[in-house]
């Protein structure tokens, strides 16, 4: 009688490991978000007049500055992907049927992409004084209302 021993599993050739990169991403983006979020809160609520300064003009002013455009863009992308990946982990844990799991994960990423696209559009195409807007709907600092 001979004993058959299964050959041990060998290391596979290099492949992209999404779980590993997901894990690294969660840590890196987490650290970056702590700085971004607290910087955001500090600039909005503390500096100068603090919370009283926040109004439409304040936001419009920030988004006309490339520094804050990039800051908010980073915050948007990092936070949405961070949050969606966290939700994906929870779905992977609790969805019992493979079909349900795939659908839920698909919905999550579709939502994430939609929100990122919309948010990015807003940050880069935001115009507080559109040329064809009705004057009474536009803020007081627009040229139309200052004549």
């Amino acid at each position: 009688m001979s004993i058959v021993i299964e050959p041990p599993r060998t290391a596979k050739p290099k492949r992209t490991n999404w779980e590993k990169w997901g894990w690294i991403y969660m840590r890196v983006s987490g650290v970056a978000l702590i700085i971004l979020v607290f910087g955001h809160l500090f600039a909005n609520l503390w500096v100068g007049e603090g919370i009283k300064a926040i109004d439409f003009a304040f936001v419009a002013g920030k988004w006309s500055d490339p520094f804050w455009q990039v800051w908010d863009l980073l915050m948007l992308w990092l936070a949405l992907i961070h949050g969606t990946n966290g939700m994906r982990t929870i779905v992977n844990d609790y969805a019992e049927r493979e079909k349900t799991r795939k659908r839920l994960v698909w919905i999550l990423w579709a939502t994430c992409v939609a929100l990122i696209v919309l948010g990015t559009l807003v940050i880069y195409t935001f115009d507080p004084c559109p040329a064809n807007g009705t004057p009474e709907n536009l803020p007081s600092f627009c040229p139309v209302n200052q004549s």
Binding site: R9, T10, A11, K12, E19, K20
Partner: peptide, 16 residues
């Protein structure tokens, strides 16, 4: 055999 074991635990259902 650490390379093999690390690869096994780098799996979707591994340490991550």
């Amino acid at each position: 055999g650490s390379e093999v074991r690390l690869d096994i635990l780098n799996d979707k259902e591994g340490v991550w």
